[in-house]
Amino acid sequence: MKTERVYTKRSFWELNRRSGGYLLRKTLKAKIVSIVRWLLVFGLCFMIIQPLIIRFVNSLKPEIDLYDSTVKLVPRTVTLENYSIVLGLTDMPNSMLNTLWISLLTSICQVVATTLVAYGFARYDFPLKKFWFACVIATIVIPPQAISSSLYNYFARFDILGIIKLIKGNTLNLIGSPTPYVLMCLTCMGLKDGLYIYMLRQYFRNVPKSLEEAAFMDGCGTMKTFLRIMLPDAMPIIISCFLFAFVWQWTDVFYARNFLTSSYSILANQLSSIETKFARTLAGVVQGNASTTVAPARSQQLISIGVLVCACPLIVLYLFAQRFFVESISMTGTKM
């Protein structure tokens, strides 16, 4: 006859008694670990978020509340007047649009160029490969300040082997147009391009080589293999490189200050001059009193509004693309 086993649901303490106290210890440990973890995560998250919240709350305060010591966090009246001041000072719709298309253009150029180069490094063997890859690493390390002045001079009198001078009779002045940006991005010398090459190369190296061999046997050419087989798989990592490039380009001051001096209004440039601009407008109101200074609290408020407005599109972008980041970077593998 078949014996039937009956499973009865035992209480926690009963189980604990049977295991000799092990269950209780284990549960308690898990609880404590989760509490400590929660505290840590919450504390660190709070630390990151808190300045943003304070900035946001501050930005809604009218000016009087800033000097009122009884107002700490919650403003007496909520006003959007500060935003309109900042939007006016920074020439907002215009500079936002300019920043948008310049960042898009440059980051697309960066991604196209770095993907090609990274694929070359990952998949082909050629003389001096190690040397060139060392050069890629070197481009990350060299401070842009070291080369900015001579780059400026180069682009101010731009010429390719004297050809332009031969045709037009004069060298080109590219300062003030996005062309230097685009040229540098197309040749992998843009902002942090070395890092993207490194990341993409790590990804391409981990793709099984048999895929390409199969494609080759089936008569796929080099370009076709790259476009049809490697690229579709690499899309997540390429998108996350694109997002990195976009974010860093959006907030970049260095190239903006050097190459787009005054002809385009760029968010980064506008943002760093909010304070002086506001002081100037105030001085205009007070009628020629040149030494007008803005109260520190007030100018901090305006700057933090600028920061919020500048960071907002990026945060929204990230919320949509967040799943790409970690997943795709985890595909690049751990090997150097």
Binding site: A113, Y119, L186
Partner: peptide, 17 residues
């Protein structure tokens, strides 16, 4: 082919770096 792929980098490195 490999050199062709990394040619943009080589050019950029020589000219802009």
């Amino acid at each position: 082919i490999g050199i062709l792929f990394i040619l943009p980098f080589i050019l950029g490195f020589l000219v802009f770096m």
